[in-house]
Write a protein that binds this DNA or RNA. Structure first.
Lengths: 212, 212
DNA sequence: AGCAGTTTCTATACATGTATAGAAAGTAGC
DNA sequence: GCTACTTTCTATACATGTATAGAAACTGCT
């Protein structure tokens, strides 16, 4: 299409994304609303919907740009360690993105800018001896774990901020020690036990189990 | 408190939960709004908030009841298989709950009625030779994987229903075969490759890796 | 210039979760 | 019975994402 038709646009997707990023960086992801964003770009909320399908897509595009700009880590030669390193890089990339949690409802990663991660993971898994099919399975399993871990960790953080009685706390409070001996044993230490970062442990176990 | 004070309640939490369950079963979880629920119970939306902190807690309580009513499977003697079986039961329990996805933003399972699952998993992990601390880690890693898998699967299902171009499809369409050889190789078969249920494979790998 | 077609933008409206203020309906002490 | 207090409920309001209808601004054709 050499000559475009129709009313000429006053705003572009890129402009919207840039403004969104600005808002997020300045005032946090919680303040990013379509109306606020529109104000920032100098238009109305509904005008944004011509450049972006919905808010979820907006955040996805943002995540995409973000991931595309990250440095790719060097990967070790050993295939097993390669998978672990790539997975941890993926985890770090997504964790570092404050709005990622709202988009994590994806069955797999993801988007143009983030394809590096699945590519490396699948490739390393094949090098480790898996068939391509198994390698794809492995990647998706790792992704599910990664997404679940990040979502969980984000929820925990939010809960700690908001304060108030956790539903879990109540569950632990009325815990029957006879019926649930193990949980009773650790109930008092739960907060402490679950504060540690166990992601690496998890991927290592996963990779060990998957590549054998 | 033998004699209660204050205006006597016209509705109870149990009543609300029952009505909510009825609405979900009859018209789907998508139609469950606070106003609809209030109408069903014969009160106003805001009145519900005296019996339930917010909608999330409502769904959590519902999930709790649901999980509490499920039959507990027999667990095999072998500790490793025991963990796998308990995890799969947990997965099945949560998957079977249509509204669970909206509540899955929890850092760990969960609630009074569902404590059976973590108890069994931690216990089996200890029997398999882990310390209590490691067993708790193992349980949470399994939970993160489980939650991520369910959320992903739900997102995929939704996307299939709604139709329209997936973001992923677009990503695959403009895929550079030189930069991403592995992904290009499987791009055409992605839908087929990711349709299979890989949860069992994942937990098995995870348990293998964790219990060694 | 005028008409048709296309794209972008504006105005308005709606459903939703939930905050807030205050009314209603009880109990206990006097 | 009256007042103080407590709990529950009602009315109203607001921010949010987004649907819908139509106006506005452009191109190309006649």
């Amino acid at each position: 299409m050499p000559t475009p038709t129709g009313r000429p646009p006053r705003i572009s997707r890129a402009e919207i994304l840039a403004a969104a990023l600005r808002v997020i960086e300045e005032d946090g992801v919680g303040t990013l609303t379509m109306r606020r964003l529109a104000r920032e770009v100098g238009t109305t909320a509904m005008a944004l919907y011509h450049h972006v399908r919905d808010k979820e897509e907006l955040l996805l595009l943002l995540l995409d740009d973000y991931a595309a700009g990250l440095p790719r880590p060097d990967l070790p030669e050993d295939p097993r360690e390669r998978v672990v390193t790539a997975a941890m890089a993926m985890h770090e990339a997504v964790s570092g993105c404050p709005w990622a949690v709202d988009v994590l409802r994806a069955d797999d990663l993801l988007s143009v800018g983030a394809l590096w991660y699945p590519e490396r993971i699948v490739d390393a898994a094949v090098r480790a001896g898996l068939t391509v099919e198994d390698a794809v399975d492995a990647y998706r399993i790792i992704w599910h774990y990664t997404a679940g871990e990040i979502a969980g960790r984000a929820a925990a953080r939010r809960r700690r901020q908001e304060g108030g009685t956790t539903y879990r706390e109540r569950a632990f409070a009325e815990l029957d020690a006879e019926e649930f001996p193990r949980l009773s044993e650790v109930a008092g230490r739960w907060e402490e036990l679950t504060a540690r970062d166990t992601y690496a442990k998890g991927v290592r176990a996963l990779v060990d189990g998957l590549l054998r």
